[in-house]
Simulated assay, not measured.
Amino acid sequence: MTGENDVRGSTLGGLEGLDPGPFSRRGFVMTSLITGLTLATARVEAQAITTDAEGIEAGEVKIPAADGPMPGYRAVPTGAGPFPIVLVVEEIFGVHDYIKDICRRLAKAGYCAVAPELYARQGDLSTMTDVKTIIAEVISKTPDAQWIADLDATAAWAASAAKGDPGRLGVMGWCRGGRAAWLYDAHRTDLKAAVAWYGPLGGERSAIQPRTAGDVAAEIHAPLLALYGAADAGIPVASVEEARDKARAAGKTVELVVFPEAPHGFHADYRPSYRKEAAADGWARALAFLKRHGVA
């Protein structure tokens, strides 16, 4: 583990207000990724999708961050490239087998997909078995400025060392990662497209997480596809519609798709919340959206 360093948050271009001041980079608690699936939620492992690595290169990588090597997972087609980059943003459970498989699916579709472990400094998600503990001890203590800088570092690494094309950059996230997709879209001026799978639009604000996804809806740069479930008990459809309308009023592009019977986590094929038809439809829409907006 590296020593404790004080890193001052810089003004993050395109996302005013996301400068909470100094925050501590503590070094990495997690130096490698989770093996298997998360221990922190109910699982139905028999239904989990497993994508092979035929025709692609896939595996754990070390991504140079400001304070040392950050663990991550990369999947990319074989061949010289460069290939369009998709930054894959995890749920709250870490880069486990489900997130790794998503990277392989994207690689099969022609993308350089990279999932950095954005919570590696705050806690060891491989050992955590309780959602409330993860939220209290890891999620709420991870500064937005930190993970945004880490995604920037991941994009730079993908372009320089992983056969990625920096001119074709997209982001896709699930749950908390869906929130990240909105925020990163408001930060990154050269982003081509973003896909948010059931990311919360509201939530508590804090000194290190000063703005919600709904707060920045009018500030996004790239077109955003919002995939949500009408049966999501934690994210009212009205809140997503409000964010969409706020974005559109500012001249931004947000395409909202609401799946009538789908609960939160409907794409997570390893969980009881999985809804096969909605997940497949959403995935097809996501790939088409990336292609339509220049990430292909």
Rank of each mutant, 00 (worst) to 15 (best):
Y111I: 10
I34C: 07
D144T: 11
V114S: 01
V44C: 08
A115P: 01
D67A: 13
E45V: 03
G72P: 02
K100A: 10
P84L: 15
I85E: 12
K100E: 06
H96Y: 06
I56T: 06
R74C: 12
G72R: 03
R43L: 13
T35K: 15
V76K: 03
L125C: 09
D67K: 10
D130H: 11
V88D: 03
I49P: 15
A42Q: 14
P84T: 14
Q146G: 03
T78P: 03
R104G: 00
Y98N: 12
G94E: 10
A120N: 11
E60G: 06
M128L: 13
T38D: 01
I139H: 00
A65M: 05
D124Y: 08
R43F: 08
A65S: 14
M70W: 07
T35R: 14
V89A: 14
C103V: 02
A48G: 08
I102E: 07
Y98W: 13
M128S: 05
A42M: 12
V138T: 01
T133H: 07
T142E: 06
K100R: 15
T50M: 13
R121M: 14
D144C: 07
G94A: 13
P116L: 10
E54M: 09
V114N: 00
G110A: 06
G72C: 08
G81S: 14
M70L: 15
A80R: 14
L125P: 00
D67C: 12
P77D: 13
E54D: 15
K62F: 03
A80S: 15
E90T: 05
